[in-house]
Simulated scan of single mutants.
Amino acid sequence: MRTKMFLITMVWIGSAVFAYAQTNHTGHSDDVDHSTHGQSSAMNEAILREPGQGAFAALSEVVRVLEADPETDWSKVDLTGLRMHLVDMDRLISDGVVEETNLPNGISAFVTGDAETIATLRRMVPAHAVQLASDDRWTVAASETEDGVELRVTSDNPSVIARIKGLGFFGLMASQDHHREHHLMMARGEEAHGH
């Protein structure tokens, strides 16, 4: 019985020490030399995939691509513009207040929020509607009002109608996988649609 209790205690202590080591950031002060983290980059690449918060992770990934490309024209790089766009993406998802109406052939989504959110919606929804409209299985219309933006997506095909309703406003805004290419174009200072 004592042996069993000893083993249980040792496992518990070992787990507690491991958990503490994983969460303790003692010594990781503001003046830490981040270059020393690169010394174990091979190990980190095998384990870590996300270098922090979502927008930071997206910027970090873009910086890595730009630095690896010998053709990068650093005089045109616009990471501030990309950061502002990522803030807009976050605001749309986090702060947009959506009222969806099911239509017989799709949905109408009216989206509103505070003044900053409405400004974001006006930048993003009409621009993304153009991308959505490149899919000829549905019809897309976006219109601005004083209080927000309406996105209407419809189809004559019952399976596409089911898809539209399943996606809803946020799924439709995430559709048309062009975001990574768009972000890289923005970072490079190239022309890209405004959302």
Rank of each mutant, 00 (worst) to 15 (best):
M1N: 08
M1P: 09
R2A: 10
M5Y: 10
W12P: 02
G14S: 11
S15G: 15
A16N: 02
A16H: 00
V17G: 00
A21F: 08
T26R: 03
G27M: 01
H28L: 14
H28P: 00
S29N: 09
D30Y: 06
V32T: 04
V32Y: 15
D33K: 09
H34T: 08
S35H: 11
S40N: 11
M43Q: 08
N44D: 14
N44Y: 12
A57S: 12
L59W: 08
S60R: 09
V62L: 05
R64T: 07
V65Y: 15
V65M: 11
W74R: 03
V77D: 03
T80A: 07
L82V: 10
L86R: 03
L92A: 10
D95F: 06
V97W: 12
V98T: 12
V98I: 13
G106H: 04
G106K: 09
I107W: 06
I107H: 03
F110S: 14
V111A: 08
V111N: 13
V111Y: 07
T112R: 09
G113D: 13
A115M: 10
E116W: 04
I118Y: 09
A119T: 15
T120L: 05
L121A: 13
M124W: 11
V125W: 01
P126E: 02
A127N: 04
H128S: 05
Q131H: 10
S134F: 05
D136Y: 07
D136L: 10
R137C: 01
T139A: 11
A142H: 11
E144P: 05
L151V: 15
L151W: 05
R152I: 12
V153T: 07
T154W: 00
T154I: 02
S155F: 04
S159W: 00
I161T: 10
A162G: 14
R163I: 00
K165A: 04
G168R: 10
F169R: 01
S175Q: 03
S175W: 01
Q176K: 09
R180M: 05
E181G: 15
M185D: 09
M186K: 10
M186N: 02
